[in-house]
């Protein structure tokens, strides 16, 4: 069974320790929301798990299907089934979404195996229909000149096409107006409803996103680790009380 186990993970940037003992297990189809104030290590967690070179894992482990991914290159982690939906996706001028995805799909095939172009486009169009994306979209260069909403839709489309085991979604709601947010959320929900849905780690600063993507679990992250876990009602409580409530509790607990 495909599950992601994050065990006592410690991450630093240079000398600075950011994530300090993060534990979480994500099972297939589960949506775990990780909330918390800015600078608490949420994005660091997602990027480090994906293998971003700026981050150093100083302790703990990340296991996908029981195997540690930490020794793997970022691309190997991706091919194993880890997907990161970026907060700020990069632009790739001159490379169309269709060609980029094709390269990504090809990269997952055995050496010497050729991609069947007809089958690929059939699948791509099916996913686009599922996500209600216009056919013209994939002939545009990846994220080049995209609006915030288009960039996030592009991420969701890639996620749908690459069918990861685990998706880490980093601040998917940032920079989106309410209409764009709804569209993106619908996309994620349709991926959740499809066969073999991935386990999702949903990183967000605001409760707002969780009105549209209803999580199975909500975790509050502060000072580099989870300080409180609960169901979706925790998000509402957090919304009502604000992060100061968490900070105070944390201060009291560590005093």
């Amino acid at each position: 069974m495909s599950q992601l186990v994050i065990k006592d993970l410690h991450i630093s940037i240079g000398e600075k320790s950011i994530v300090k003992g993060f534990n979480l297990t994500i099972k297939p189809g589960e949506v775990h929301a990780v909330m918390g104030p800015n600078g608490t290590g949420k994005s660091t967690l997602a990027k480090a798990i994906a293998g971003h070179p700026d981050y150093t894992i100083t302790g703990g482990d990340v296991l996908l299907d029981g195997k540690s991914v930490l020794a793997m290159e970022p691309d190997e982690r991706a091919r194993t089934g880890l997907f990161l939906a970026f907060q700020y996706p990069s632009e790739i001028p001159g490379v169309s979404i269709a060609n980029f995805l094709r390269a990504a799909v090809q990269a997952r095939m055995a050496e010497g195996e050729e991609l069947d172009a007809t089958g690929y486009y059939k699948r791509l169009y099916a996913k686009m229909d599922l996500l209600k994306i216009d056919r013209k979209f994939t002939s545009r260069a990846v994220n080049d000149g995209f609006s915030g909403g288009e960039k996030k839709r592009c991420e969701i489309l890639q996620m749908a096409m690459l069918e990861p085991k685990i998706a880490l979604m980093d601040e998917t709601d940032s920079g989106l107006d309410i209409d764009a947010l709804r569209i993106v959320a619908e996309g994620v929900n349709s991926i959740r409803a499809a066969a073999n849905p991935p386990g999702i780690l949903l990183i967000t600063h605001y409760q707002r996103l969780l009105d549209y993507i209803v999580p199975d679990f909500v975790h509050v992250m502060y000072a580099g680790r989870i300080v409180k876990s609960g169901d979706k009602s925790l998000a509402l409580e957090l919304e009502a009380k604000g992060y100061d409530w968490v900070k105070k509790e944390f201060a009291a607990a560590t005093a």
Binding site: D75, R79, F86, I92, G94, A107
Partner: peptide, 30 residues
């Protein structure tokens, strides 16, 4: 070619070399 761009492509499963190639091919695509 920025490190972020290469990381982005690697995160989709392309090797560093494939990512570089794609980036360069994109640059001259027109």
């Amino acid at each position: 070619v920025s490190e972020e761009q290469i990381f982005y492509m690697q995160q989709r499963g392309l090797t560093e070399g494939q990512a570089m190639s794609l980036s360069v091919n994109g640059f001259i695509n027109d």
